[in-house]
Design a protein around this nucleic acid. Structure first.
Lengths: 242, 242
DNA sequence: CGAACTATTGACACCCCTCAAGACCCGTGG
DNA sequence: CCACGGGTCTTGAGGGGTGTCAATAGTTCG
């Protein structure tokens, strides 16, 4: 059975502009197959040179870098629709590892087709730059959070960001969404220790703002959460505009 | 007098592959002029929509984000050869501010020509993705530094990164290079307080590893610096390879 | 000469890290 | 069936790294 590629970022614009038939044809050739992996599978490894690019169709994961002393920085949480491997596609080496935290299904692309995409489908190439710029923006925000906010603010910020993101993906049901990670993962993402992360989560729970239990995030007071996170707007474009 | 664009990243490949004459012609049209600004000039403002893109020809600056409570995260130091405004070019809004810390000269491009670049010059478009991916990589490294390293390691890391970068640019003379920033700028880049940054700089100086006085960074023991910074290799591609 | 900015240094407080122990869950094997 | 081990979550105690406050000195500039 074939899952649809509707979440693929390279097709995002298709939601607005009718895609030309020769482009559809190209996308078929660009897509080389689908991949299903179990939880805890290492998808890409720091320093390696993956010959393939992925789009996440379902499931979740995380990107991380490791230091010589064993510490780990989680760079990003991977959600459906995310594009993996652009760095390896364009430079010749992944700069972080990618791991599945649940079972995932992925859309697989040929890296070797990337150049054809630039040559014959400038619109898709433009989408790629847009995507890379969006990543850069999010990373800058994360850096600001880790560099300038205290523990309660950081966790509030991450929950707010995740909740907004999940809402855009249509994955919020009721007041919450699935968030299948360990507290250690969040700690490594925010530059906090596991213990302090745990205690801060309890505080946020006691404040009746948000709670995260058994892999499910529940937000009961989004306004308060945004206030604690010190975010004003967080409007995100979902389409290239040129 | 017209300064050469040899540092422009869009021309980087020209150092290796002979650029075609029609591309040269296009670059001429793409480039709309040059700009000279004094120190402390605000080049781009967070949230604004700049109609222009810049390449730094000379001088230095910094990119930063500000929080509602007034705190500031320096996202990156801006050196000659850097490309400014890609975010605004591709999304419709800058996600950080850019400020000059010395007088600067900039190469100015028309944002409206960006689409032509994608349509008619896939090689240059590819360079743009490469550039955006490189930025993403550096930001990820910075996030790792701020999230996982202590004060001495962070400052060592930043000095090491700056020194390598300056070496690639050919701006290292003797054992050091110009680094025209305030201690407050470095503190805001690394998520440290000004006072603690100052004390840690003194420690690094006393250890005879590196010192930073009167706008000049001097590295006397690069190996020790790399060791403190916990970086193993730091090999950087200087050219797209596809 | 005074105002403003930056660098420097000491004193003190506190946020957060580390260490440690216990609870709970789950898989495995005796 | 229950014992055992490993993983994760939780909580307490204590210490250290880092932030904040404060004061001094040097420089530039009007």
């Amino acid at each position: 059975m074939t899952t649809s590629c509707r979440n693929c970022p390279l097709r995002r614009r298709a939601l607005f502009d009718p895609i030309e038939s020769d482009e559809l044809d190209f996308m078929q050739r660009f897509k080389s197959g689908e991949l299903s992996v179990d939880a805890d599978t290492l998808l890409m490894m720091e320093g390696s040179n993956s010959p393939q690019l992925f789009t996440v169709l379902s499931g979740m994961g995380l990107r991380y870098k490791t230091l010589p002393n064993g510490r780990r920085q989680v760079v990003n949480f991977v959600f459906p629709g995310d594009f993996l491997g652009l760095q390896a596609g364009v430079m010749n080496e992944m700069k972080h590892s990618v791991e599945a935290t649940t079972s995932m299904t992925l859309c697989v692309f040929n890296r070797s087709e990337l150049w054809n995409l630039f040559k014959n489908h400038p619109g898709r190439a433009y989408d790629l730059v847009w995507l890379a710029s969006l990543e850069e923006h999010f990373l800058g925000d994360a850096l600001t959070a880790v560099g300038q906010r205290d523990a309660l603010e950081r966790i509030s910020w991450s929950f707010h960001r995740i909740y907004i993101r999940m809402t855009e993906l249509g994955l919020v049901t009721g007041q919450g969404c699935q968030l299948p990670y360990r507290q250690q993962d969040l700690a490594d993402a925010l530059g906090l220790s596991l213990v302090h992360t745990n205690k801060t989560l309890k505080k946020l729970r006691d404040m009746q703002v948000a709670s995260w239990n058994e892999g499910r995030l529940t937000v009961s007071d989004l306004d308060r959460l945004a206030e604690l996170a010190m975010v004003d707007d967080h409007h995100v474009e979902t389409r290239p505009l040129i």
